[in-house]
Design a protein around this nucleic acid. Structure first.
Length: 920
RNA sequence: GGGUGUUUAGCUCAGUUGGGAGAGCGGCGCCCUUACAAGGCGUAGGUCGCAGGUUCGACCCCUGCAACACCCACCA
């Protein structure tokens, strides 16, 4: 085989798998299904996606190999606001405004963009090896989804769970649409608290109010104080004059007011603040909307302010109040500023007509299924997040003043009556509306998450009663990030229960958030993001800088990003290949909430891939072409063969356990350690004395070759879910007699641990063998004896088992240690002064004459004695503690006693040894 | 203000019913030994955040504290 070059082996397999239809559900096993969290069509896959989808793919491949009828449902999301924003920006680059095009033409452009961008995602997923069932790929805006959305909307409307009303909603003045609570990100920012004096009517006095948003005073309809506030009690029921206007405001009392804060007097602006809105309802206050949809001031404010942007109006109001002597003071003040998740601009509470979904009733069963364990979160801690949010759920504003999305199936007549139905015809028919009554369809579309919420069942054909729905729903697992539990997971659970009576999935596996090496969230604006394919294919430093700094809004940032990038990746990024990247993802998929992505890890796992590749090369070099009787001929497995077979069983069991508990890190670790530490470091070395020995019997060679091949073959299957490409490549090169007749490793059975193949005697023998080899290597290493120098090795004070083992494994030891001689000493034999290591009670000795540095050996012995002394002191402490002996379990006590005896013997030997060396 | 999570070797992290602290990377030393220098062999390095408690015994269980991270919340 050539050197390990992922580029050469990862390109072609995916196509073969796909054209072979291997990703389709097949067989008669139990079903296993996962619906992909649909990537947004607008985007490209980032590290978080690659991470999640890699985890899912291993699970899917694992179940498929276990014989399950497995479906990984593919699809993408139309991502309403994001896509509309992107398309708008693209048009703007050509000098076109959406309004120039009109709704229909704009949507054509959006669809064009969707086709283009969807390809990118598909290509990326394929490069990652994701074994998705492409044939039934869906899109949240396709016909079937539209059908499902209609069905759901109409039913919920008819049940009164969807309603329309004028409410205060979160309004994005740049996107000019409402958004949901979840799409508002509040962050603490530095601001000011302006204290304004409002003159009290029929008095020379003032009430001073404090506000963070001065411009809203133009929409005030009251001022409020706490009913128990002695300072203001007498004023309740009186009025103040609202400066800059000709209006007067009542002074009201409400328990909501905090007397301690500011002046204890609050201006009330019911149309522009959520709290004030509630207070306005309690006190029947006037709602005065002072803003246009783009957050300029409307005609309900005094002429001087009309048409001003809200922030210009703020300056103007402050200046005017100051001029009137009514600006009492300005304080610095930290406040939580709500910003739109997508646009980044300050969100306004804004009064408008919107559609809402009543959530309380839907939430109840969705809370229950989690409380009762029907749906489990992994890690469990996230269940709390979910439950807390669900128990306090608010109605969901589902309408968006956008074009790209599912248009709301509602029509209005001229009188403003609303009719909901599948189509205008259906509505007319149902309500008996004559043809001469003109109907206008609602312009708004639904929040993207409305259709996403139907994902698990609508992708399987609902509302039709399809066989797929019957077979694959509920799905088994949902793998996603914690940031999306409220947006998506919760809504899927609610809607799926409501419309199918089933849970959407049995488990919710919440992955950690992938950050950069510094623990910073990867993002475009920070310029610290990585494209997973750049790790797969490699990228030059210049190209990476270009990628990270292009389309930057601030040139200053670009310079900083370039500097950081040059520092972090001075030579760009190597091409590590998909397998290495995937294996890295599994290894770092711990239960931690954030996961730092470190390129060093990728390098390490690329090395691991290389190791497995070379080991396979070794196996094939020494077994192929396969002799005619290689499989059929007699073979007696050696102890070493039995040992590696045993180790493999233990590894398979560990992987199985890990997969059951979603501990991908442990699965990866088990495979890594088996391949590197056992298979490569020991077993392959231990086969050489057989394979390279001209005197070896045909039978023993056959057994060794067979074991090499069969263990490798099984290892490839075990590793395939994690390293899909290289395992397939190598597996295909194995002889059919070994791998069976299958077309692809993908559809082979997943190795199951067989306890009957675990041979503890073999394990013990090999452990002894390793200990002896390690002991002599230690002496070599510590005494600085070169590997080329052949040294005599003596064994003393061993028991019968040691002696038998030495005889049995002499040739192996000769090969591994390359000694001048191996000599068993009986108790009475003369023993030269030697460097010593203990294997159990047996001494492994290397005579010092001419070889060994006396001082170094004394140092080494001192260190060893020191270590053993400490251990003995600890054990003695325990044994001499009566309560330990009385209360600890007998086996634990016995273990300590045994240890003490062993240590005493060992120490005695070491001290005697030290004396002998010192006396030289 | 409420809630959750994290704190273990220089760095990044494992540690599965409480019973002798581990890995990878990095460091140091030796080795181009015929699968692999993307390698081999050896080696150094830790009062397991702090303080109490339970226990014969605590990285692990309980309490408190600290630092960091994240989530939720209407303080003008």
């Amino acid at each position: 085989m050539d050197k390990y070059q992922p580029k050469n082996i990862e390109q072609s397999w995916y196509q073969k798998w796909e054209s072979g239809k291997y990703f389709a559900p097949q067989g008669n096993g139990p079903t296993f299904s996962i619906a992909i969290p649909p990537p947004n069509v607008t985007g490209t896959l980032h590290m978080g996606h690659a991470f999640q989808h890699s985890l899912v793919d291993s699970l899917i491949r694992y179940r498929r190999m276990k014989g399950d009828k497995t479906l990984w449902q593919m699809g993408t999301d139309h991502a309403g606001i994001s896509t509309q924003l992107l398309v708008t920006e693209r048009l703007a680059a050509q000098g076109i405004k959406p309004s120039d095009l009109g709704r229909e033409k704009f949507l054509e452009k959006a669809w064009e963009w969707k086709e283009e961008s969807g390809d990118t995602i598909s290509r990326q997923l394929r490069r990652l090896g994701a074994s998705l069932h492409w044939d039934t790929e869906r899109f949240t805006l396709d016909e079937g989804m539209s059908e499902a959305v209609l069905e759901v909307f109409i039913q919920l409307f008819e049940e009164g769970l969807i309603y329309r009303g004028e409410r205060l909603v979160n309004w994005d003045p740049v996107l000019t649409t409402s958004i949901s609570d979840l799409e508002v990100i509040s962050e603490e920012e530095n601001g000011h608290l302006w204290h304004f004096k409002y003159p009290i009517v029929d008095s020379d006095e003032f009430l001073t109010v404090a506000t963070t948003r001065p411009e809203t005073m133009l929409g005030d309809s009251a001022v409020a104080v706490h009913p128990d506030d002695e300072r203001y009690k007498a004023l309740v029921g009186k009025f103040v004059h609202l400066p800059l206007t000709d209006r007067t405001l009542p002074i009201i009392a409400d328990r909501y007011v905090d007397s301690e804060f500011g002046t204890g007097v609050v201006k009330i602006t019911p149309a522009h603040d959520f709290n004030d809105y509630e207070m306005g309802r309690r006190h029947d206050l006037e709602l005065i909307n002072i803003l246009n949809p783009d957050a300029t001031l409307n005609n309900d404010v005094p002429e001087a302010y009309r048409g001003l942007d809200r922030f210009d109006a703020r300056k103007r109001v402050i200046a005017d109040m100051d001029a009137l002597g009514l600006l009492h003071k300005i304080e610095d003040h930290k406040l939580a500023v709500p910003r739109g998740e997508k646009s980044g601009v300050v969100i306004e509470p804004y009064l408008s007509d919107q559609w809402f979904m009543a959530m309380k009733e839907l939430a109840e069963p969705a809370i229950r299924v989690v409380e009762e364990g029907e749906i489990e979160f992994v890690p469990k801690a996230y269940e709390n997040n979910y439950l807390v949010w669900m128990r306090d759920i608010q109605d969901w504003c589902i309408s968006r003043q956008q074009w790209w999305g599912h248009r709301i199936p509602a029509w209005y007549d001229e009188a403003g009556n609303v009719y909901v139905g599948r189509s205008e015809e259906a509505v007319r028919a149902k309500h008996g509306l004559a043809a001469d009554i003109s109907l206008n369809r609602d312009d708004d579309v639904l929040d993207t998450w409305f259709s996403s919420a139907l994902w698990t069942f609508a992708t399987l054909g609902w509302p039709e009663k399809t066989r797929e729905l019957e077979e694959f729903h509920s799905t088994d697992v949902m793998v996603t990030g914690h940031d999306i539990i409220t947006f998506w997971v919760s809504r899927m659970i609610m809607m799926t229960l409501k419309f199918t009576g089933e849970i959407p999935f049995k488990k919710v596996y919440i992955t950690g958030l992938v950050t950069d090496a510094e623990g910073q969230k990867m993002s475009k604006s920070k310029g610290n993001g990585l494209d997973p394919l750049d790790i797969v294919d490699g990228i030059s430093l210049d190209a990476l800088i270009e990628k990270r700094t292009s389309n930057m809004l601030q040139p200053k940032m670009a310079a900083r990003i370039e500097k950081a990038t040059r520092k972090e990746f001075p030579d760009g990024i190597d091409a590590y290949g998909t397998d290495a990247l995937r294996f890295t993802f599994y290894s770092i998929a711990t239960s931690s909430r954030t996961i730092r992505f470190d390129m060093k890890r990728v390098e390490g796992y690329r090395n691991f891939c290389n190791k497995l590749w070379n080991a396979s090369n070794f196996v094939m070099m020494n077994t192929l072409p396969l002799a005619a009787d290689a499989v059929s001929g007699d073979k007696t497995l050696s102890v070493v063969d039995h040992w590696i077979v045993s180790e493999f069983q233990k590894t398979a069991a560990a992987v199985e356990r890990a997969m059951q508990t979603y501990r991908y890190d442990l699965a990866a670790k088990a495979i890594y350690e088996f391949v590197w530490d056992e298979l490569c470091d020991w077993y392959l070395e231990l086969t050489k004395p057989v394979l390279y020995n001209e005197a070896a019997t045909a039978e023993s060679v056959r057994a060794t070759q067979f074991t090499l091949l069969s263990v490798l073959e099984a290892t490839l299957r075990l590793a395939h879910p994690f390293l899909p490409f290289m395992t397939e490549e190598i597996w295909q090169q194995l002889p059919e007699e070994i791998r069976g007749g299958g077309e692809t490793i993908m559809l082979q059975s997943f190795p199951e641990a067989d306890d009957n193949l675990i041979n503890e005697n073999a394990t013990a023998d090999v452990a002894w063998l390793k200990a002896v080899v390690t002991a002599s290597r230690n002496i070599r290493g510590e005494m600085d004896i070169s590997f080329a120098k052949e040294i005599p090795i003596l064994f003393k004070n061993g028991n019968d088992t040691d002696k038998a083992r030495l005889e049995r494994y002499e040739s192996l030891l000769n090969f591994l240690i390359k000694p001048e001689s191996l000599t068993w000493l009986e108790a009475g034999d003369d023993t030269p002064v030697s460097a010593t290591h203990l294997v159990g009670e047996m001494q492994v000795l290397v005579p010092m004459s001419g070889l060994i540095d006396k001082g170094a050996e004394v140092d080494r012995l001192n260190k060893e004695i020191d270590r053993k002394e400490k251990e003995r002191a600890r054990a003695e402490g325990k044994i001499n503690n009566p309560s330990f002996v009385d209360r600890a379990p007998a086996d634990v006590v016995q273990k300590e006693k045994d240890k003490l005896v062993d240590l005493a013997t060992a120490l005695q030997q070491l001290i005697a040894q030290r004396e002998r060396v010192e006396s030289l």
